[in-house]
Computed example of a mutant assay.
Amino acid sequence: MNRVRVLVVDDSPTMRAIIKQKLRSDPDIEVVGEAGDPYEAREAIKTHSPDVITLDIEMPNMNGIDFLEKIMRLRPTPVIMVSTLTQNGASATIEALALGAFDCVGKPTDGDLANAFPNLARKVKLAARSPISKRRNASTVPQRDANYRPANKIIAIGSSTGGVEALGEVLKDFPANCPPTVITQHMPESFTASFAGRLNSLCAPEVLEAKDGAPLEVGKVYIAPGRIAHLEVKIGEKLSCRLTHADLVSGHKPSVDVLFRSVAPLGARVVAAILTGMGQDGAEGLLEIRNAGGRTVGQDEATSVVYGMPRVAFELGAVEKQLPLSKIASALLKLSGAEDEGRISA
């Protein structure tokens, strides 16, 4: 197996050194070059033809977002964004993921450089094997089904790597009166508020970061806050969001398994989907939903950026039907609508 060839782009020599050290510790990765700004990076790309690029967002001469747009348009290459975990950095990273970046990692902010970027090498190797995402047209008017009539159901969705783009693709087809929808997307702290804001500007329903105690309402989509808490659905006279601060579950906080298990007692009222992502978070929770009488779908391998979570769920028997990303929204709406015929079309 050939080693994955990586180009490191960051304006900080110190940060480039840390990233190179982390990557070179993996025998399957070769750092073929580095650059301090997009102009140097452009020449390095021509010289080295890297398999993957790590790209800083804030750089001199041209910011990382503009450079990413040029990369995806002129020479599509898997890109992992490196960002500070600030509000500005979060907003820019969400934009980068929507443009087709494979994933994002946060720069260390606590001075603990030795433990920085713990999952970077793994993400680089996954990125090298992934299909290049095609940029979405953010100006596209969302498709809305004026004839849709919601039933007394709830939609739950779990996703990870590749999920930013996948969730945008799904939610853009949701009508303004969609069923209450709860989502756990693996994402760094402070990123989910920006992510929710972006989706809210592009989709017909109201999309917001989940708050503890918020009632679940028709026409609203609730996204679990990144790394702060698990999102659960509190079952009572009325359904509401509950944020819990327990330890990692299935290796994550927030965890898709936690969300899915919390809605499983609702049985046939639940329609759930597991989308692209690495690992197996959500598979066992999705199985609990299906065993309780809920309806379940999973993203297929061909359209998944990383066919990890949906694969494990499918092999476990948790997925009722695998579908391409383009058909998941219609399946969820059909199964949660007042005229559900009980079938999922391929």
Rank of each mutant, 00 (worst) to 15 (best):
T93S: 08
E165R: 11
G308L: 03
L287C: 09
K70I: 11
I328V: 12
N291F: 06
E284T: 15
P118Y: 00
V319I: 14
M187I: 10
K22E: 00
P225A: 03
C104R: 05
V79A: 01
Y39R: 15
M59I: 06
I80K: 08
D110S: 15
R135L: 01
A96K: 00
V256R: 02
L120F: 08
A96F: 04
R16I: 06
E165Q: 14
S25L: 13
Y148M: 05
D66H: 06
A44P: 04
L323P: 03
K153L: 04
P225W: 01
M1D: 13
T192G: 03
T14N: 14
Q21C: 11
A292V: 07
N177C: 14
L323C: 07
L120Q: 04
M15D: 05
S201P: 07
P50M: 06
Q87N: 10
T276Q: 03
E209W: 02
A146Y: 03
E34Y: 10
D110E: 14
V6M: 06
V312Q: 01
T84H: 13
E69Q: 11
I155N: 03
T303C: 10
R42Q: 15
E284Y: 13
T244H: 09
G342R: 11
V141P: 09
L287V: 09
P38F: 02
N61A: 14
I157P: 03
H48D: 10
G106E: 01
R242M: 15
P13K: 12
M187T: 08
D340E: 12
D145S: 15
M62L: 01
K211R: 13
R42I: 13
V249Q: 06
V82Q: 07
R295I: 11
L266P: 02
S25D: 12
A214S: 14
A151E: 11
S12V: 05
N152L: 14
